[in-house]
Amino acid sequence: MTSTEAAVTIRIDDTDVALSAGSSILDGCRSVGVDTPTICYADNLTPVNACRVCVVELEGSRTLVPACSRPAEDGMVIRTDSERVRHSRRMVLEFLASSVDLGQADELTAWAEHYGADPGRYGADRAVVSEPVRVQDNLYIRDYDRCVLCYKCVEACGEDAQQSFAIAVSGRGFDARISTEFDVELPESACVYCGNCVAVCPTNALQFRTEFDLRAVGEWRPEDQTVTRTVCSYCGVGCNLELHVQDDHIVACTSPHDHDVTWGNLCIKGRFGWGYV
């Protein structure tokens, strides 16, 4: 928020909040410590506002509005914890939990509990997402039973970062899926294995192969991992890396999403090229 343009003031739950022009309602919520659930939002991606879990009540608006993408306008009066808001958030989380496996989405599970989501009230014969785990190479796997269709991977692969567009949303409605063309295997697709999709996935539907294999043998232990920031060893661009180390072995490589060289993105060499260490 370095803009020198005129600031706007909005009211969030009875607190006046001054924001720089171009800020979103979510920026306002975060600036006053109003914890707001998000799924499809990331600070290095353009908001697609598809998940709707961040909705808030805006005075004068017939429907709730998504905090992540709605620009703050002077004089807005916002409620973030009204019964309407809590109901919609609860239902969104309940809908997702009734459709896909959130077992490795700790943050979402915590929010679902917070809002009292009860996925058990849907029938046992309800439609659920049921796809085989796609293990097509040694770098990352795709387990779409965990996919909440937040579009983040599509944005990271496409317009917002890599511009390889190897994946897109296909199909429609409940049958919509993230897919390559005709679901061809990744090595046949435009995928360049930058892993930027994996880095933004909120549910572990996309997983580094290292994590997938360690989980399979019960040896994935995030609590025992250290994260060290350093600089990539390949070309001269100077990408910052975060090396995740467990038992003195690198088990994953990410990039800080707030560093202005990478904005969280890497290429195949930086993301996966640490095997020689």
Partner: peptide, 18 residues
């Protein structure tokens, strides 16, 4: 090429699918 680096001493350990 995208997935390799110079004479390959570093990138050789990378099991690139492409």
């Amino acid at each position: 090429a995208l997935d390799s680096f110079n004479t390959g001493v570093q990138s050789g350990a990378l099991d690139s699918p492409i």
